[in-house]
């Protein structure tokens, strides 16, 4: 067969034909793969929720200012934990992270769902902050890297990713407490929710029910975020190790302090990260600075002597 001449009609026909055929193929493939793609996404999200949250019997999801929030309840409809899916703007583009919280607001863990950070650098965020986050007191203000005057060690050579990650986690903390989204502008935002928790919005959906016993009445009933401890339902002996404490709410910073101290001790830098209040932390930092300076001075004086 001879090659088609480049007449206008031939060109239009040829391109139209190719595009039509291609469109049919692509829509077919799209139809075939849409199901598995959605399933894979749901599965990875469910797995992330299970991994970061304390054990739960039933999972309830809602959306708060555009952020997906998942709350787990035990058999007695008491809150066992919260997970929030936050979005950060990293070095290589947006990333999604699932952050898990205990009812008192302390972080139980996190999992990065999707990211495009530099492998070997920013990509280390998938593991690097586990210790720092679980040791952090959520009522001591937003987390910052040391370069910004905070307490968290940034990933070496990936400060932008580290900053973005902590911003996303701070955002997740705000959402988990049900308050305004953290915008990074004021340092006070982080503590506000510790005193003024807001009522749970009603647009809740049960997304993952592990137990089939009482799946219906869950969404609004527990109201775990109201400030009074009376919101906790009957204290019955149940297999709920995470909610044994009578007051899972964080009413005052003093109420929050012991629970954070009771948190599993961090592995790497135990003495510094367990500091319950930011004031102490800065004091210690100042002390460190002073002692360092003193040491330097001593060294200098030794030099002089020599």
């Amino acid at each position: 067969m001879k090659k088609l001449e480049s007449t206008p009609l031939n060109m239009v026909l040829s391109l139209t034909g190719i595009c039509l055929a291609v469109g049919c193929i692509l829509s077919g493939v799209q139809l075939l793969t849409a199901g598995p793609i959605a399933q894979a996404e749901t599965e990875s999200r469910q797995a992330a929720i299970r991994a970061v949250m304390p054990p739960y019997r039933q999972l309830v999801s809602d959306t708060l200012q555009g952020f997906a929030r998942y709350r787990g309840y035990d058999q007695q409809h008491r809150l066992t934990g919260t997970a929030v899916q936050a979005v950060g703007n990293g070095f290589g583009g947006p990333f999604t992270v699932m952050v898990g919280f205990r009812p008192d607001g302390a972080i139980t863990g996190y999992q990065v769902l999707q990211h495009t950070e530099t492998p070997g650098l920013g990509a280390k965020m998938t593991q690097a902050f586990q210790t720092a986050l679980t040791a952090w007191n959520p009522c001591s203000g937003p987390m910052k890297v040391k370069q910004d005057g905070g307490e968290v060690d940034a990933i070496t050579a990936a400060t932008i990713s580290s900053r973005a990650f902590l911003a996303a986690v701070n955002q997740a903390c705000s959402v988990a407490r049900g308050e305004a989204v953290y915008d990074g502008s004021t340092s006070a935002t982080g503590t506000a929710g510790c005193e003024q928790p807001q009522p749970v919005p009603a647009d809740t959906v049960v997304v993952d029910s592990v137990a089939t016993e009482q799946p219906v009445a869950v969404p609004v009933a527990p109201r775990p975020r109201t400030p009074k401890p009376a919101a906790v339902p009957e204290e019955s002996p149940g297999p709920a190790p995470e909610v044994v404490e009578p007051a899972p709410q964080v009413d005052t910073p003093t109420a929050a302090t012991p629970s954070v101290e009771a948190a599993p001790a961090p592995i790497e830098t135990p003495s510094e990260t367990v500091q319950p209040a930011p004031a102490d932390a800065t004091d210690e930092k100042a002390d460190n600075g002073k002692s360092k300076r003193k040491r330097k001075r001593n060294r200098n004086s030794h030099k002089d002597e020599q």
Partner: peptide
Amino acid sequence: CKNLIPEKVHIPAYIVIIAT
């Protein structure tokens, strides 16, 4: 389908096929 693609539009046609 090289004979079905006129010379003057072969680049867009190839790109569409590759992109598919």
